[in-house]
Amino acid sequence: MWNIVGASVVGTSHSATGAPCQDFCAHRHVLIDGKSVVILALADGAGSAAHSDEGAAAAVEATLDALAILVADGEELGESAAFYVLDLAQARVRALADERSLSPRQFACTLLFAVISNDANMFVQVGDGAWAVKSHGRYHPATWPNRGEFANETYFITSPNWRTGFQFYSHPLSVDAVAGFTDGIQAVALRYADNAVHEPFIDPLVKVVAASGDSPSLQRPLVAFLSTESLNERTDDDKTLLIAARRKVHLLEWPTLTKAEMP
């Protein structure tokens, strides 16, 4: 049983100029033959593209649709499955651009998605942001922010060179929790010096999600957290954080009977 919560919050530089939030995230929790499978996706629309907020939303929705079908059909999770999903996400964005007679570049976005079931998982990314995986109590960066040569350049699923920015990872052990985030969060969530996940940031948040008995109610607190001053001081970009954690099982506490009470 998984708890999942995610939110995208507009950055202060965007709210100053009236630009919309160009990040988007969504998830599905599906049951296949009685086993739960978690499907997660997030995207960051390019600041320089006029309709990238719509591009990000379309790419995420198409990704979830494609992954749900893939999982329902029992397809193996692997690189070819990842390319199939990306192909559909790109096609959806292109179709959106065609409908409006605009260039797909106007809908440019990064894309991150993940599938986690009991016996398999995959983490896929084109562009920056990252996936952090918690397995057996330890954190691993499943992917890493993918940049071009310059700090303000990345790869978008709509770019001709998107394959250069493609990352695929499958964790060999069972996964307890995952966190996916866009570039607005990466400088506080990752440690660049040794390419590690900054556990003191991620883990307390993951624990909140794991301990919750009612994860949908965490949505609003997550939005409030992502809007706090202490985060805004460190980034003025849009911020997305999507966390999925196995729910901690609270064993019911039965009253213990003293010997005298026993029948």
Binding site: A187, R191, F201, P204, L205, V208, L218, P221, A224, F225
Partner: peptide, 16 residues
Amino acid sequence: PFINSGTDIASTYAEN
């Protein structure tokens, strides 16, 4: 719960 979780926003950012 997120704000009160004890999450560390500052230290890795300062080092990066």
